[in-house]
Design a protein around this nucleic acid. Structure first.
Lengths: 222, 222
DNA sequence: TAATGTGAACCCATTCACAGCC
DNA sequence: GGCTGTGAATGGGTTCACATTA
């Protein structure tokens, strides 16, 4: 019973936000599956993900998955459907540039959570760091990037270097064949249109949190 | 020449996204100011932030700031206007829970970038870590949180603990008086409505990057 | 009865396009 | 002439509400 077929995926461009939510639903589904719960309702996934039940149904409709009106969605089947959409049949290794505090924290973090995305290769330009092994991942010189990326067939990169080095790191990743990347450096990267960039900007997030914290009824004490 | 007054801010609830963009504009403005550029056009800020010029003008309109038709916006004045909106006149210290790899990386990161937000207090439940000083920030026991948060008058917190401990960390922060927080743990936090939560979900971001990397014209090799 | 699937309505953010200004 | 400021048009994402189904 192949619930979502390739054809659907090829056509329906699922929206950015929907993809993000599907990742979240998947996390809940994994938990439910581990708990042995065979079926789940949209409103249950909804509360877990802090969205509306209608939103969940829309999203699942978007990937072409159907549930049953009185039992809800089949946990395992839905999980498979989402995986079929999100996961690459090829490898899922990612290349990380910058093995400083942040880079090491990312490697450790990803080693702990075991999604099927993992840091397959880490790079740094500091000769001091070359050769060090962090969580089973050896640090290579940036010059090795083209070869290593090709060899491991990587498509996703992480930029975890200081701002000043970010553009160079990104350029190297792109040159090596990476097509999507996660940028932790608080600088706007200038890259080809075809490269997908996901920004993680700690400062901006914190400033937002600070701003909205201030106005959430705390009021007056300005 | 007080360009944006408190009245405007109190009323116009600037949208979430607009706040995020204003943080980004500010970064560009600081750079421009440092370069001694006294005026800037919307299209310049726009390219820096990867948004449309119209978007920039809208956003600045939203905070009640006006430029001059032929010189653009006054760099310093605009910077002051944004600061007046975003920055708290009170302190800007934040409380961080979890001094593991990630927590330490965050402290280091924030110490490097010098926005006016800084980690004022770090907490951990591991007795082993209590007392350690990272970048001038001493690690305290979580039990000290209420006192320390009150003492430093903190309103923003960062949750950088493992998933299993995240809800507890968040609850403690909220109990101590924090009103906005940044959550790095990939679990949905159940908190009072009034608390603003900004999620930073590495796994979701990576999965999104991987997904869109795959479909950006790479095609066929599925 | 209580759930799903979905057209239609709604809402908010963004962009357009142009008047006004220097 | 090229910029800003902004009403109007557009577009996309979310929610509504209800027909449908087991």
């Amino acid at each position: 019973m192949p619930v979502t077929n390739r054809r659907d995926q090829e056509r329906n461009a699922v929206s950015h936000k929907a993809i993000g939510r599907l990742c979240v639903y998947r996390r809940s589904l994994r938990k439910l599956q581990a708990m042995g719960k065979p079926f789940v309702y949209s409103h249950e996934l909804a509360t877990e993900a802090s969205v509306s039940p209608a939103q969940v149904r829309r999203d699942l409709m978007g990937i072409g998955y159907s549930g049953s009106p009185n039992r809800g969605y089949d946990t395992s089947e839905l999980l498979r459907s989402i995986a079929m959409l999100l996961d690459s049949p090829e490898g899922e290794g990612v290349a990380l540039v910058g093995v400083g505090n942040l880079g090491r924290a990312i490697i450790a973090y990803m080693a702990r959570q075991r999604p099927h995305l993992f840091v397959a290769a880490a790079f740094d330009s500091d000769p001091e760091k070359i050769g060090r092994v962090i969580h089973g991942c050896r640090t290579l010189a940036v010059e090795e990037m083209p070869r290593a990326v090709r060899e491991h067939d990587l498509h996703v990169g992480i930029v975890a270097v200081p701002s000043a080095a970010a553009q160079d790191a990104a350029d190297r990743l792109v040159a090596a064949g990476i097509r999507g990347l996660l940028n932790f450096a608080p600088v706007p990267l200038r890259l080809p249109e075809s490269i997908y960039v996901e920004e993680i900007d700690l400062t901006v997030s914190l400033e937002k949190a600070a701003y909205f914290a201030r106005r959430s009824q705390g009021a007056g004490l300005t």
